[in-house]
Amino acid sequence: MAQVSSIAEEQAPNPLSASKSVLLRISRFNPETDESNKFMEFSVPYQKWTTVLEAILDVKKHFDHSVAVRYSCRQATCGSCGMLINGKPRLACFTKISELNSDVVTVEPMNNFPVIRDLAVRFERLFDTHHKIKPFLIRDDTELESNEKEFLQSPEELENFIQFANCIKCGLCNSACPTMTTDSSFVGPQALAQAYRYVADSRDKGKDSRLDIIDESHGIWRCHFAGSCSQVCPKGVDPAMGIQFLRGYLLGFRS
């Protein structure tokens, strides 16, 4: 399916001021009817600040409203619009076309996630593994039982984990991970980084139970420190760092 259409020439009611246009190739795939994906091509005008998500929404608005894409906040906060952009996992709302330095932008669904349709993928497994590592503070007491209204923490203690609390669960790290390309049972960098986020939290007392959860054959030992997860993280979480620190606990380097 190689249909090339141009917004500027055919559809736009007002002349767009953009002087450049890019060939946007969108992967189309419906698992209920298609055996393999096909690419539709559109010529889309763009400006210096135009994001890939805006270009996709232009296509939906002017050419084909059936293109399936998940998005919400448009400001790299909700983690909904992760996709492969020119072969690399990125957030569409956080990727400017001008930064890609290419006349062709190819968008595909993220790898290692089942495809719902076109660019939208299922997140159930990511949320399951995230839930598996107990993403909440574990304590003997609770705020309700204690007279204190909050658990105090020093700024230094906060620094130990605040970076990992930036995770927006976009799934880019799981998509880039080389272990996840072959191992369907691997817990994945997102969940492991979040395990470290809580283990490093001075208010949390659930370190041992979390380490037990990840200390298994498809757990932390399947990470081989390729670091691709950290390279694609749009929030600077650096899952590879958290995973190595976490492994340090299990190997006895940290206590």
């Binding site: 795939f29 698992p31 209920e32 393999s36 790898n111 290692n112 089942p114 996840m180 072959t182």
Partner: peptide, 8 residues
């Protein structure tokens, strides 16, 4: 590409 997979 299948619905359940999409692994490289």
């Amino acid at each position: 590409m299948t619905q359940d997979d999409n692994k490289e």
